[in-house]
């Protein structure tokens, strides 16, 4: 190959290289522009999608608020209807009662018992009187605590006395006026003061302990008396009688007295009949046992404390469970 031909080939190659370079640059520019365009389009579409999502969110919130309002409204209405239904039921029962009274029906007497059960009731009442003098758990625990407190005070006094005795021994054997003697004197003064305070505390605690022991002794005797009392064992028989009486009254569609209907209504609810009957038995038994004769308040005035208060509370709890 001649030198001219080689130079031509080199020029052609250089021209092709330039042309290729120019085309690559053009293609790169086009590609960049295309990428920018795609970016912009994607960004625009993302913004649009976001706006649509925001709008959907707002619609969802609005729907939730509406649903909440609706639920509240429905709940309120349901309560209103339940109140009205209860009032209507009461009025119907009242009318029924009035009609029955006009027809000569009298409310069933749940407070009295047949003469053959009178000794049983007397026994139950006597047992209950004994039981009312028995301490409740809290009082008994407090009395036991008094005894423990005395023992603790006495133990502490014994410890202080031992320390004082040790210091006194130092005072007896150390050189009078020396450093150890002076330290023992200061310690004895402090222990002696503590001992005097503790002796006064122990004396007071002993008085309380003696009283607590006497009360616990009396309580144990009363508990024993209650356990051995015939009335404690016959309460179930009385409860069975009251249960039969209530069953008969419900079965015969008898009128219940006002004190009964104020807490238990005129008829048992179909869903909780057994609970209703047991609560009714408890109320009637409480009235018979404690001779409550109030015509409106089923359990009479609430007792202040003691076993009767616990019974009152239990019956109230049984009645409260019926409303749940």
């Amino acid at each position: 190959m001649s030198a001219d031909a080689s130079g031509d080939l080199a020029r052609v190659a250089a021209g092709l290289r330039r042309e290729m370079g120019s085309k690559v640059n053009t293609l790169r520019l086009q590609l960049t522009q295309e990428m920018q365009r795609i970016d912009k389009t994607a960004e625009k579409r993302a913004r649009e999608a976001l706006a649509r999502l925001d709008a959907a969110d707002a619609r969802g919130d609005a729907l939730a608020a509406e649903q909440s309002d609706l639920r509240r409204h429905v709940d309120r209405k349901l309560r209103e209807y339940a109140t009205r239904a209860g009032r209507l039921e009461g009025e119907i029962q009242q009318i029924e009662g009035l009609l029955r009274r006009q027809q000569g029906h009298v409310p069933v007497d749940l407070d009295s018992v047949p003469p053959e059960l009178a000794p049983l009731v007397a026994d139950v009442r006597a047992a209950e009187r004994v039981r009312s003098t028995i301490m409740d758990d809290a009082t008994r625990a407090a009395r036991r605590q008094e005894i423990e407190r005395f023992e603790q005070s006495e133990r502490e006094l014994g410890e202080t006395r031992q320390r004082a005795l040790g210091v006194s021994r130092s005072l007896a054997v150390r050189k009078a006026g020396g450093w150890a003697f002076r330290r023992a004197a200061a310690a004895y003064r402090s222990e002696r003061a503590r001992m005097s305070e503790q002796e006064a505390e122990v004396a007071a605690a002993r008085v309380r302990r003696d009283a607590a022991e006497r009360e616990l002794g009396r309580d144990a005797a009363q508990e024993q008396a209650y356990r051995s009392h015939p009335g404690a064992a016959v309460a179930d028989r009385l409860a069975a009688h009251v249960r039969d009486r209530i069953d008969a009254a419900v079965a015969d569609y008898e009128l219940f007295p006002p004190w009964f209907t104020t807490v238990l209504g005129h008829r048992p609810a179909s869903t909780r009949t057994a609970d209703w009957r047991e609560a009714a038995v408890q109320v009637v038994l409480y009235r018979i046992t404690h001779e409550v004769t109030d015509r409106v308040v089923a359990l009479g005035p609430p007792p202040e404390d003691g076993h009767r208060a616990a019974q009152h509370h239990a019956v109230q709890a049984a009645l409260g469970q019926l409303d749940e």
């Binding site: 014994g158 006395r161 031992q162 004082a164 005795l165 006194s168 005072l171 007896a172 006026g177 004197a185 004895y188 003064r189 002696r192």
Partner: peptide
């Protein structure tokens, strides 16, 4: 052995109290 009789302890404590009275006077 401890616990000592209350009479014995009282004698010791009254003796210590008398000693303490003299210490206080000094």
């Amino acid at each position: 052995e401890p616990p000592y009789g209350p009479g014995q302890l009282d004698r010791v404590f009254s003796g210590t109290d008398e000693l303490m009275t003299v210490v206080d006077e000094l």
